[in-house]
């Protein structure tokens, strides 16, 4: 057994293992809140059950991506001359595993709050469900980014002899994986609060939806930064000279933008959640809340931008 196969199997294991954490916790939260809601409103238990299954199905999609990637890694053909190298395969596994964490957790949190909302106001069920579904779909975006990067790494091309290039492939997976966590959780938090607010004021449904979408779009910024840097890392030229400082710069670059995106993603999600709650309390002041939210989120994101700047500086030093 050669190193390529070893790396692929290790990556496949970590991919599914890490990828199951988020969806596991998230769906557990959903199930718990479904039970609580049913305890309060036994009359609508069949509606709660239906919503729980819909919400969990969406929250699970991130870990299904993990399953697909680990299957690709396990059953890939590594004897052909165009097969990818060990670093790319291991990176692909880590990327999808970490990338599924945030979206799975966020999707589950969104469904849990939506179920409490349905329990409180069963009459608004249809509106709550649609806010939840759209919010969850946006919360899955970071895991789709991770999926794209994993596929690029798996089908990207031949093994290279250059250790900088190999490290860059591994780090591109890691940076996208870490960078997806914050945005996934943050978008999930805001989707949950928006669904919950819909149950309190169903007539402000369209305003709640637009506030949630704007807030979520801003909280995706760290994931977009991570995707940008990981694509730049994938396309690092083959010809770079191998030196220890360049190797360290590649590693630092990936860690900086990946890990640096976790906090700002979650924080921006918090802000969007509270803005949705505020819109439900006072729908006529929607533009004021959206404005405050955007200003607050923009400032909260400056640390992710510093991380991006450091990563771009490090990338230039290679």
């Amino acid at each position: 057994m050669d190193t390529v196969q070893l790396a692929a199997y290790l990556g496949a294991g970590l991919c599914m293992g890490l990828g199951a954490i988020g969806a596991g916790i998230g769906e557990g939260l959903t199930g718990g809140d479904a039970a609580r809601s049913m305890d309060r409103q036994p009359a609508v238990s069949n509606r709660l059950m239906r919503n729980m299954l819909i919400g969990q199905a969406v929250a699970e999609s991130a870990s299904i991506f993990s399953l697909v990637v680990s299957m690709l890694l396990i059953f890939g053909n590594y004897s052909s001359p165009t097969a990818p190298g060990p670093a790319a395969l291991f990176g692909a596994g880590l990327c999808m595993g970490l990338g599924a964490l945030g979206s799975g957790l966020g999707g589950g949190m969104a469904a849990a709050e939506a179920l409490m909302g349905v329990g409180r106001n069963p009459g608004a069920e249809r509106r709550i469900t649609s806010v939840m579904l759209i919010g969850q779909a946006v919360a899955q975006t970071p895991s789709i980014f991770s999926f794209v990067v994993s596929l690029l790494l798996i089908f990207g091309g031949a093994e290279t002899a250059n250790s900088i290039k190999e490290t860059a492939l591994l780090m591109s997976g890691l940076s996208m994986g870490f960078g997806a966590i914050g945005s996934g959780v943050g978008s999930g938090i805001s989707a949950g609060r928006a669904s919950d607010s819909t149950s309190k004021r169903p007539e402000a449904y369209s305003k709640l939806m637009s506030t949630m979408l704007v807030g979520q779009a801003v909280s995706q910024t760290p994931a977009v930064f991570a995707l940008m840097v990981s694509l730049l890392l994938i396309f690092v030229p083959q010809s770079v000279p191998v030196t220890l400082p360049s190797l360290a710069a590649v590693i630092g670059c990936g860690i900086s933008v990946g890990v640096g995106g976790i906090g700002p993603g979650i924080g921006a999600g918090f802000a969007a959640a509270e803005a949705a709650a505020a819109v439900a309390k006072n729908p006529s002041k929607e533009s004021l809340f959206v404005r405050t939210m955007l200003t607050g989120q923009a400032v909260a994101q400056s640390t992710a931008i510093y991380a991006l700047v450091i990563a771009l500086v490090l990338l230039r030093l290679i």
Binding site: G260, Q297, A300
Partner: peptide, 19 residues
Amino acid sequence: GLCMGFGAIGPGIGEGFAA
């Protein structure tokens, strides 16, 4: 890289809370 990456987590969450 490590410094900026891990240093960005706390302020990001905290400032989001404030917002």
